[in-house]
Simulated assay, not measured.
Amino acid sequence: MTSTTTNTAETTKPDLGHRLHEDVLALLLGTMVVSLGVMLYSESVLVTGSTAGAALLIEHATGIGFGVIFFAINLPFYWLAFKRMGLAFTIKTFIAVGLVSLFSKLMPMWIDFSMLNPIFAAIAGGALMGIGLLMLFRHRAGLGGINILALFLQEHFGIRAGYFQLAVDLVILACAFLTLPFDKVLLSILGAVVLNLIIALNHRPGRYLAAR
């Protein structure tokens, strides 16, 4: 009797995986939210961590568009994504990086800021990027670079993705002292803390079963 009940429960267990249209919607909305956060940072001459931070630093130093730099700087990390995280994750991440690159070029055509407080930009921009990344993580996608390494370490070694990214981001932000004013770097660090705390507090192994 118990065995039959158990088998029935197992066969009727709901499928928690995401459907294709759910993944598509998450990729579109998640990358759009991230791109809005990136725009706040770009307008306020702030930087964030990971490959996005490196792309923003290069943009501030050279004037080359963020989208082109961001797409190019992530290319070497797709091999790690494929070898360690699988084909589906790699494809989703490639699409997500492409969408952020595209949206970052389109955002200035859609939104214009006549006044933008840098403290608000640091906090709101960091929060937007953290929320957008969280959406992507829960649908088995990332934004390349350190995101791929962070997710790999969390899934295989139990190291929190948010805390690992925070440590790496602080190193990247330290390099910003070479190109940006002191107050801009401090605000960028504030934004990085906000971003990574959102991920660390909300993206934990086993918490979101549908992500698998």
Rank of each mutant, 00 (worst) to 15 (best):
L27G: 01
S114F: 04
M85L: 11
P181H: 04
G142T: 06
L186Y: 00
L87Q: 02
P76L: 06
H18P: 04
M109R: 11
R207S: 14
I119R: 06
F164V: 11
A150M: 05
T8F: 12
L99T: 05
S50I: 01
E59W: 03
I95D: 01
R204T: 15
V97Q: 01
D169Q: 10
R84F: 11
G63K: 15
L36W: 04
G144V: 02
L36D: 09
T51H: 03
N202A: 12
A54F: 06
F71Q: 02
M32S: 05
L178R: 02
N7T: 12
T4W: 05
N196I: 04
L116P: 10
F177D: 10
M85H: 02
F182T: 08
M135T: 09
I69N: 02
Q154Y: 03
G63Y: 14
F152N: 12
L149V: 15
L87G: 00
T48F: 11
V45K: 13
R140T: 07
P76E: 06
D15W: 06
A54L: 15
T31C: 13
A54R: 06
S3Q: 14
I131M: 05
L29F: 01
C175A: 13
A81I: 08
D112H: 13
A161I: 03
E155R: 15
I119Q: 08
R207V: 10
S188L: 08
V33Y: 01
I64P: 08
T90Q: 05
G63I: 07
A211Q: 14
G63V: 12
F164S: 01
T12A: 06
S42D: 07
A176H: 08
D183K: 10
P14C: 02
Y208D: 10
I146R: 03
S3K: 05
D15S: 05
A141W: 04
F164P: 03
A121H: 08
I69W: 03
L173F: 09
M1C: 10
V97C: 05
L106W: 13
V24E: 03
I73H: 00
F157R: 13
A211C: 10
K13F: 14
I58V: 13
F120L: 14
M129C: 08
P118Y: 01
I131N: 08
I58L: 12
K83R: 14
